[in-house]
Amino acid sequence: MYKIVKKEVLNPTVTKMEILAPAVAKKAEPGQFIILRVSDDGERIPLTVADYDREKGLVTIIFQIVGAATIELNTKKEGDFIADFVGPLGKASELSGLKKVAVVGGGVGCAIAYPVAKKLHELGATVHSVVGFRNRDLIILEKEFSAVSDEMAIMTDDGSYGEKGLVTDALKKLIESGNSYDEVIVIGPVIMMKFVSLLTKEYGIKTIVSMNPIMIDGTGMCGGCRLTVGGKTKFACVDGPDFDGHEVDFDEAMRRSSIYKPFEKKAYDEACNLFKGVE
């Protein structure tokens, strides 16, 4: 059992939790993920490590309330326990040696982009952050990002905060205005990672994306998380989750992530009704 030491609501659909898991906290690095089960009959869900405190033994996760498992997780309060918490899984992001980087985050993906930006900043790199949200109410980690960024652009789909437009618009502007990046790191919805990768390919800028496909064990056993990278089958759990954005078959990844959509929708609706009943 793993204790929820702190819980914070970041916006109506995104929650942050700090989980007591000293062994995981000791080894976790930006880019890696954990798998958790809320209760004994629960689904195994992968979440990227958002932060860690090695001394206090805490691992931070930030999740969007999208399915039955995350709804159930969100019912847990500070001091409650979750059944399982395993990690750190996957390879850490390779950040050393980078001098100037654009970090692009979309939606809840910003939760994962932030520790990357923070680590780059600590390593002395110049960090330009581009973060995008649907609207003002969904913005998370604005202060945190600005603290570790040399330049920052906030984009909203509806223009209710920052600039109206997509992250690709802001990134394009930064590149066109003469910034030359060693690397662009993109974390967010697959569709966003696809379009950022298409853009950076035009400019020939190396681009790393963080893939978060469906998986079960997360240790290289089930093969559910496979994706095509450079024409070869790769497993996100052991070969990734970071991959070269110019090589990933995003359309296949989007299609594969939709396998259980009808099931998830049904489970989500049922869970919503269930918890409504409880409250």
Binding site: C222, G223, G224, L227, T228, T233, R255, S258, I259
Partner: peptide
């Protein structure tokens, strides 16, 4: 460890599983 696949076209379609999964 990692499941083997045949390397034939269509193995990453939705509805293709490894036996492990």
């Amino acid at each position: 460890g990692l499941p083997k696949f045949m390397g034939i076209p269509g193995e990453n379609l939705n509805g293709v599983y490894s036996a492990n999964e």
